[in-house]
Design a protein around this nucleic acid. Structure first.
Lengths: 167, 167
DNA sequence: AAAAATATATGCTCGGAGCATATACATCAA
DNA sequence: TTGATGTATATGCTCCGAGCATATATTTTT
């Protein structure tokens, strides 16, 4: 294959996979948009501040505050004051939020797994290795890492290449 | 790597790539959101109807009509009546639209290429082959194919696996 | 102690997106 | 041919998420 064709194919696949991930994740979230990512991020990093969440979601301040308002109103998340910085608001999931988070992650996993099912075990390993290498090349800052991993299932991620690259 | 880790890595990479594609594409588009995809799709398929565009973008009727209204108002696209079906509106790009389309596609290509630069030529080929196999497994309908290829540079796509799978 | 930087909250407004509906054309059945 | 159903487009209305500007609280720096 010619390089330009390869780029097209990889780009198209990335869009298709991202579509699947977001569709499946949003289906279990209380609203479309960044809510699903917000829930899984708070689940991933309990005590996350609104500002860090904002950077991970690439939203404005006010947009993030309003999103958190809605999550709190729906009983999925709770604010509490951060112990180290009294300006900051720390976020955590409620038990209902944890349930929702699990539902989002398992829906996400299911769709992805079925898309990957056409590969043999060896092909999957090879693809995963190359993907990990690409991912390591992409990570820049810690904020960016949170953004990249915004829909990851952290309990299932052994030897996360993003983490490895940052360390 | 464990399968669940591989899935996380691949999912994260897909999101990261999709972010890059959409960021670069939108930077050259007249507005954020689906406008960039709409422009490249119309460029790809001159005479495309609003209904087909709607399905490729996963929008509502009215949302698509308004989007086209805006593109026409900005001088990027034009409506003309479809020769075969007098209900339908056919779309084409204006010369200005063509210029914008090229800018979107080359910006998209540039960002993607730099993300892929960490791979050797052999790795890139291997990754592309596996991506093509995955892509063929994903394509279902023709509408879906348009959606998947919504940001592709069709002039640079030799032996498109999506096309091959549909045929 | 004052000044600058950082984190959050809120009033205001804008604009994209959907719903409901209207109109035009096509297709199929009788 | 005519009438009924389905499909394609257009538009009034409304909702709601997102950003901007601004206010307040806390931390950090000078």
């Amino acid at each position: 294959m010619i390089d330009s064709s390869i780029e097209n194919v990889i780009g198209a696949l990335a869009l298709a996979f991202a579509d699947i991930l977001q569709r499946d994740a949003q289906a279990k979230a209380p609203e479309p948009g960044p809510a699903a990512s917000a829930i899984t991020l708070i689940g991933h990093v309990p005590g996350l501040s609104i500002e860090r969440l904002r950077r991970a979601l690439s939203l404005s301040h006010s947009g993030t505050v309003r999103l958190v308002d809605r999550l709190v109103a729906e009983g999925l998340a709770a604010r509490f004051s951060a112990p180290d910085d009294h300006r900051a608001v720390a976020l955590r999931l409620t038990p209902l939020g944890e349930t929702t988070c699990s539902a989002i992650l398992s829906a996400r996993q299911k769709g992805l797994a079925s898309a990957l099912a056409v590969l043999s075990q060896e092909e999957l390993q090879e693809f995963g290795n190359l993907a990990a290498k690409l991912l390591r090349g992409l990570v820049s800052t810690e904020d960016h890492a949170y953004r990249i991993c915004r829909l990851c299932n952290y309990t299932a991620c052994i030897d996360c290449p993003v983490e490895a690259e940052l360390a």
